[in-house]
Design a protein around this nucleic acid. Structure first.
Length: 789
DNA sequence: AACTAATACTTTTTT
DNA sequence: AGTATTAGTT
C-alpha cells in the first residue's frame, strides 16, 4: 500500500494501491506536439500507460486475456479500460459488467474509475463481486427458480446447523460423518456447478456410505422451504436461471456489452460457466489474471480456466504485462527463477528497468523462536535506519506461525497488526445480533431464530426446542409460528411458556417499529430489550468488552444504509473488518491474505519442507499441490519492493512434539546470483544456544539498554502499556528459578509486567503470583518479574 | 444450568 | 502443547 509517494507523472490519477507510477517509456513522446496535444485533450488517462497496458485498454472488441504478472499494473488497466469505454461512448455505466472476488477490490475499482472520469458518472451498478452481482440478478427473477424475492442468504453457521438437522433426521452418526464435512462437499460440488443429480457416484459414496447425493438434494429442498440460498447457490441458481430461461439470459447478454473479470485465475467452474453464458453472444470479455498467482485451488479455483482461455474463447487476443514497477531486479530474478520450476504455465518473464537492489537474503535459524528473535532484531535495525513499520510485513504460510512473532513483538514492545484472521461478520456477537435483526424482519427464518431463542438464557432449552421442532415439522410451518401455537396450549411448563410468549411479543413489538423508527435506533433497542447487551455487560471475561465494542461498531456500520432491510441485504456479502490505518505498525499475515499487497521489506519465515510446500498440499494434490505451494512462495517474494528475507527453522514443534525440519526445496530453487546467505553474526552470546526464555534478562545480558525495544518498553511503562488490539493472544509460561522471600507484594496489588502489562494480584503462593492481567488474562508469574505500581 | 473431565482437533479462507 | 468443544456429573 503506497502511501508516501509524491507522484508528479500521474498527479491527475488517484493514488495507486499497486505502485504503477514509474513508467519507463512514455508513448506520448513518439508523437508530434500537435498529436500529443490533441490526444491529451481526448484521453489524458492513456498517457499514463506503457505500450502493452495501452494495448490492453484499447483492444475493446472480442475476447481478451490480459496476463498481468505481479506488480505490472493490472488494476490500472482494468480501471482505465472502463474509463475508456465510457469516454468513447461504447457503453454507458449500466452496460458494463465488472466482477471481482473481494469487496475490497470492488470498492477500490469503483473509486479509481470515478477518479479517472472525474466522478461525473453516477455509480456502476454492475461492478461488484460475483456473489453480489449474483444476488442482484437472482432477486429480480427469484420466482423463476422457486424462490421469493425476499430470500435470505445463509452464512456458514446456518448452513452447518441446517445440515446437522438433516443428519439427525436421517439418523446419521454426526461423529463419523460431521456436518462440516458434508457442507464442504456440497460447497465443492456447487463450485463445480454440479446439481445433486449430476454428482458422480464415487463422490456421493464419499459420505455416509452413499447418502451424499441424497443429502445434498434434501439440503436443497430445505433451503427452498426456508426461502434461502447459501453462498454457492448465488452462482448455481444463476446458472439454473440462465439455462432454464433463455429469454432472461438473452436480456443480460444484450445488456452487458462489455465484461471485465479481475483475478481470472481464481475463478471456479461455476463462475466460468456463468461468464461463458453471459459472453456467448457479444463476447466482449476481458479477463485479467496471472496463472502464477493462483493460490486458491483448494477452494475450488481452477487454474485451468485461465490456461484454456484461448480455446474457450476462440479468436481471443492475449496480452502479457511483464514490465514490473514494483520490485528490484534481484527480487524479481529470484521470484522468476523460482516460478520457472512450475510446469503448465502460460509463461511470462517479469523484468524491470529499475535498480538491482539488494539480493534476497536467506537465513537458517535454530528454531521458530530464534527466527522470531532474528526478525525482530532486523526490524529494530530497520527502524533505527528510519524505516516505517507500515512498510514491513511478515508473511507466513500458516497462522500458527504468527504466535512466535506476536510473543516476540509484545516483548519488544513493537507495534504490529494482524491482517486477515476472523472476519468481523464471523464473530459470535455480530452473528447473534444479526440473527435478532433478521428474525425481526423475517420471522420465518428458522435458523436465525434457533440461534437466539436461548441467547441470552431464557430457560428455553433443548426440551422446549424439541417440542417446537416437532410441531413445526408436523404442520410444515416455521418455528416462530409453531411457537405461537404452542404457547396457547398446555404442552410447555409454565416457565418456558411464559418466556417464549414474552419473546414472541417482543419480536412483534420490534417488528411494528420497523417502519417508524430509525433503523440504527431500533437495532439498539432490540439488542437492549432482548437482554443481549446486558448479557455481555454482565460477563466478566476479558473478551466481553471487545464484544460490546464490536456491537457498537455494527450499529455504526448500519448508518451507511438507509433501512434495516437494506443493511440486511448487504450484511452477509459485504462486511469486512476495517483495517485500522494511521498508526505505524508491522504487518503480520498469511501469504494468502498478502495477495494484492506490497511492502518495502518482506520477511518470509518458515520456508521449511512440510510447511512451505505444505505437507497436506503435497499429500492431497501431488504435483499440482506442489506447484500451488510454489506459486504461494512466488506471491510472497513479489510482495517486496526493496528487500526480501527468507528464513527457515531447523527445529519446529508440530502438535507439541519437537521435530527436525529440513529447509524448503524452494530455497535451493532460487537462482544463486540473486541470493545472499546471511552471515551468522547476530547478537554474539545468544547465537546457537536455542531459545532464551528470559527476555528481560537477555537485555541486561547483552548490555545494550539503548535498543529501540528497550526505549519503547520504557516509554510504554510511562504511558501505561499502550493500547493493544483484539487478535493478540498472549501466551507464555515463565519458567523461573525460585527466590526465597516475598517482595512485599500484596493481594489485590496493581502490578506491571514486561510481557503482560498491567494487572491485579489474585493470589500469592510464596514468590509465585497469580495475576489477572488486563489484556493478557490470568497468568502465573514469579514476583521478580512484576513491579508494583 | 453450571461445573469439571475427557476428548478431539490443530493449512490456507475472497463470498 | 494447547485449546476448544463436548460429555458427564452435581
Amino acid at each position: 500500500m503506497a502511501k508516501i509517494r509524491t507522484s508528479t507523472a500521474s498527479a491527475a490519477l488517484p493514488s495507486d494501491v499497486e505502485s504503477e507510477d514509474a513508467h519507463g517509456t512514455a508513448p506520448a513522446e513518439m508523437l508530434s506536439i500537435s498529436q500529443r496535444a490533441m490526444r491529451r485533450n481526448a484521453e489524458p488517462y492513456l498517457d499514463a500507460l506503457n505500450p502493452e497496458q495501452r494495448e490492453a485498454v484499447e483492444t475493446l472488441d472480442g475476447p481478451l486475456l490480459v496476463l498481468a504478472g505481479a506488480g505490472t499494473g493490472k488494476t490500472r488497466v482494468l480501471t482505465t479500460r472502463i474509463a475508456h469505454l465510457l469516454r468513447l461512448g461504447r457503453a454507458n455505466p449500466g452496460q458494463i459488467l465488472a466482477v471481482t472476488f473481494t469487496n475490497k477490490a470492488a470498492r477500490e475499482m469503483k473509486q479509481r474509475v470515478s477518479g479517472l472520469i472525474g466522478g461525473v458518472v453516477e455509480g456502476m451498478p454492475w461492478l461488484g463481486t460475483f456473489h453480489a452481482i449474483g444476488v442482484k440478478i437472482l432477486r429480480r427473477h427469484a420466482e423463476l427458480v422457486d424462490l421469493k424475492p425476499s430470500f435470505t442468504v445463509l452464512d456458514t453457521d446456518d448452513q452447518i446447523r441446517l445440515i446437522k438437522q438433516l443428519l439427525e433426521a436421517e439418523n446419521i452418526d454426526e461423529k463419523r460423518w460431521p456436518a462440516r464435512v458434508l457442507a464442504g462437499m456440497i460447497d465443492g460440488w456447487k463450485n463445480r456447478g454440479l446439481r445433486p443429480e449430476r454428482v458422480p457416484d464415487g463422490e456421493s459414496y464419499g459420505f455416509a456410505n452413499g447418502k451424499g447425493r441424497a443429502l445434498y438434494s434434501a439440503y436443497q429442498r430445505r433451503l427452498k422451504d426456508l426461502n434461502a440460498v447459501d453462498f454457492g447457490d448465488l452462482l448455481m441458481e444463476n446458472l439454473r436461471l440462465f439455462q432454464d430461461h433463455p429469454d432472461v439470459l438473452e436480456r443480460y447478454q444484450q445488456r452487458f456489452r462489455y465484461m471485465l473479470v479481475d483475478e481470472y485465475q481464481d475463478t471456479n467452474v461455476a463462475q466460468y460457466l456463468w461468464l461463458r453464458l453471459l459472453a456467448q453472444t457479444n463476447a466482449n470479455i476481458c479477463c485479467v489474471g496471472d496463472d502464477d498467482q493462483s493460490i486458491y485451488g483448494w477452494r475450488g479455483a481452477e487454474v485451468d480456466n485461465i490456461l484454456r482461455f484461448e480455446s474457450d474463447f476462440p479468436g481471443a487476443t492475449v496480452i502479457r504485462l511483464e514490465r514490473n514497477y514494483r520490485s528490484t531486479a534481484h527480487i524479481l530474478g529470484a521470484a522468476s527463477g523460482l516460478i520457472a520450476h512450475n510446469q503448465g504455465r502460460l509463461g511470462k518473464t517479469l523484468h524491470t528497468d529499475g535498480d538491482d537492489g539488494e539480493k534476497v537474503v536467506v537465513q537458517g535459524c535454530w528454531d521458530d523462536e530464534e527466527e522470531a528473535r532474528v526478525i525482530g532484531e532486523d526490524i529494530e535495525q530497520l527502524q533505527r535506519q528510519g524505516h516505517t513499520l507500515n512498510e514491513i510485513a511478515i508473511l507466513v504460510r500458516a497462522s500458527f506461525q504468527m504466535r512466535a512473532f506476536e510473543d516476540r513483538f509484545i516483548t519488544l514492545g513493537l507495534d504490529y497488526r494482524v491482517i486477515g484472521g476472523p472476519r468481523f461478520y464471523e464473530r459470535q456477537e455480530i452473528r447473534d445480533a444479526i440473527a435478532y435483526l433478521d428474525v425481526t424482519l423475517n420471522p420465518s427464518n428458522d435458523l436465525k431464530f434457533e440461534r437466539i431463542v436461548n441467547v441470552p438464557r431464557r430457560g428455553l432449552g433443548d426440551a422446549t426446542l424439541k417440542s417446537l421442532h416437532q410441531l413445526a415439522r408436523a404442520s410444515e410451518i416455521p418455528l416462530t409460528q409453531a411457537a405461537r401455537l404452542i404457547v396457547e396450549t398446555e404442552d410447555l411448563k409454565p416457565k418456558p411458556r411464559r418466556a417464549l410468549s414474552a419473546l414472541l411479543s417482543s419480536f412483534d413489538r420490534w417488528r411494528s417499529l420497523v417502519d417508524t423508527m430509525r433503523h440504527t435506533e431500533l437495532a439498539e433497542l432490540i439488542l437492549d430489550e432482548s437482554g443481549y447487551t446486558g448479557m455481555w455487560q454482565a460477563d466478566r471475561s476479558q473478551q466481553a468488552e471487545g464484544r460490546l465494542e464490536n456491537l457498537k461498531e455494527l450499529i455504526h456500520f448500519m448508518e451507511e444504509f438507509d433501512t434495516l432491510a437494506g443493511f440486511m441485504e448487504h450484511v452477509s456479502l459485504v462486511m469486512d473488518a476495517a483495517t485500522e490505518e494511521g498508526t505505524d505498525r508491522v504487518n503480520l499475515m498469511t501469504l494468502h491474505s498478502a495477495k494484492g499487497l506490497e511492502f518495502d521489506t518482506v520477511f518470509l519465515p518458515g520456508w521449511d519442507e512440510g510447511l512451505l510446500p505444505h505437507q497436506r498440499s503435497l499429500d492431497e494434490a501431488g504435483r499440482s499441490g506442489l506447484e500451488e505451494e510454489r506459486r504461494l512462495a512466488h506471491v510472497g517474494l513479489t510482495r517486496a519492493r526493496k528487500n526480501a528475507k527468507i528464513s527457515f527453522a531447523q527445529n519446529r514443534r508440530t502438535y507439541g512434539m519437537w521435530q527436525t525440519a529440513v529447509p524448503s526445496r524452494f530455497i535451493d530453487e532460487l537462482p544463486h546470483e540473486h541470493v545472499e546467505v546471511a552471515e551468522d553474526n547476530g547478537t554474539a552470546s545468544m547465537r546457537g544456544y536455542g531459545p532464551s526464555r528470559f527476555d528481560s534478562e537477555e537485555m541486561f545480558a547483552t548490555g545494550n539498554y539503548e535498543t529501540p525495544g528497550w526505549q519503547r518498553a520504557r516509554a510504554n511503562r510511562q504511558r501505561g502499556g499502550g493500547p493493544r488490539h483484539e487478535p493478540i493472544t498472549i501466551e507464555g509460561t515463565l519458567v523461573a528459578a525460585s527466590t526465597a522471600e516475598g517482595s512485599g507484594i500484596q493481594l489485590g496489588q496493581r502490578v506491571f509486567h514486561q510481557k503482560f502489562g498491567y494487572g491485579r494480584v489474585a493470589s500469592i503462593d510464596g514468590n509465585k503470583l497469580t495475576v489477572d492481567f488486563e489484556k493478557a488474562g490470568r497468568k502465573k508469574v514469579v514476583d521478580t518479574f512484576v513491579e508494583p505500581v
